[in-house]
């Protein structure tokens, strides 16, 4: 039996930009719902009126505590202060949210402030019988896994390869309670200094030399990577230059003989 706190953020759909539950945070909640917990405290720092918070309630949470703060404030201090008063055994959160600075630093800074260990990129947690430690499986690059034994308390960030989150249901989402706790939060000076603009796919540089010269991994990449949007960007070319580029491209595609 263990006391779990889950940090949940508001995500953003990559296509529509609409607010939604953040995918890795939802996986963190899914993992928390599967743990033998004596208490589950779900926390969000931000606007208590955000409709996306209902998506988390719809997964079967009875209540969600929101540390109400203005947009653009730094949530680390209020979250750490609230967690200190709860002193949970395990703090779960997604390894990266969809918003703010998108740096994935928050769990590290929270763990640092609390002075507890952080285990990044977790895909499974089993709490030991005594409740003093947990077996944790960590996701590494290229599908490798590492088993760890971690003493409580600790902060774990959940990797996208963790078991997928259950669907959010409308009825429980509507019935769940949001408890708003107003907190003082310092303004986030770094975020305020950032300029945000829509992300755009950069044109890729044409590779020199035959594809596949770099070995098996390059050939695999060449075979599996999406080719859309690939091309050379000529800014203000002369007509001859442009015609030559098209001619070369057609030759490359095999439309024209070399």
């Amino acid at each position: 039996m263990v006391d779990v706190a889950i940090l949940l953020s508001v995500g953003r759909h990559p296509v529509s930009g609409r607010a939604r539950r953040a995918p890795t945070d939802a996986r963190a909640l899914e993992m928390a719902l599967g743990l033998p917990a004596v208490r589950r405290t779900a926390l969000h720092a931000g606007d208590p009126a955000s409709p996306a918070l209902r998506d988390y309630l719809g997964m079967g949470l009875d209540r969600l505590t929101v540390l109400a703060m203005a947009h653009g404030c730094d949530p680390v201090e209020p979250l750490a202060a609230h967690l200190r008063s709860l002193s949970p055994g395990i703090v779960l959160t997604g390894n990266r949210a969809e918003g703010g600075e998108d740096s994935g630093m928050l769990p590290y800074r929270v763990a640092h402030t609390l002075g507890v260990a952080i285990v990044p990129d977790v895909v499974a947690i089993t709490v030991e019988a005594g409740g003093g430690a947990a077996e944790v499986v960590q996701a590494l690059a290229r599908g490798q896994r590492r088993a760890l034994r971690v003493a409580l308390p600790f902060v774990a960030t959940i990797h996208p390869a963790a078991p997928s989150a259950r669907p959010s249901a409308f009825g429980p989402a509507r019935r769940g309670r949001i408890d708003s706790v107003p907190v003082e939060a310092p303004p986030d000076a770094f975020l305020a200094a950032c300029a945000a603009r829509p992300w755009r796919d950069r044109p890729k540089r044409l590779t020199v030399g035959a594809p596949g010269s770099g070995g098996a991994l390059d050939r695999l990449r060449a075979a599996t990577e999406a080719k859309a949007g690939q091309g050379r960007l000529l800014v203000g070319p002369s007509p001859d230059e442009a015609a030559l580029a098209i001619y070369e491209c057609l030759q490359e595609q095999g439309v024209l003989p070399r």
């Binding site: 719809g58 997964m59 079967g60 997928s164 259950r166 669907p167 959010s168 249901a169 409308f170 009825g171 429980p172």
Partner: peptide, 12 residues
């Protein structure tokens, strides 16, 4: 779907 969220995975 509305009360249990028990829609099959792909449909959900």
């Amino acid at each position: 779907t509305l009360e249990l969220g028990a829609t099959p995975v792909k449909a959900a």
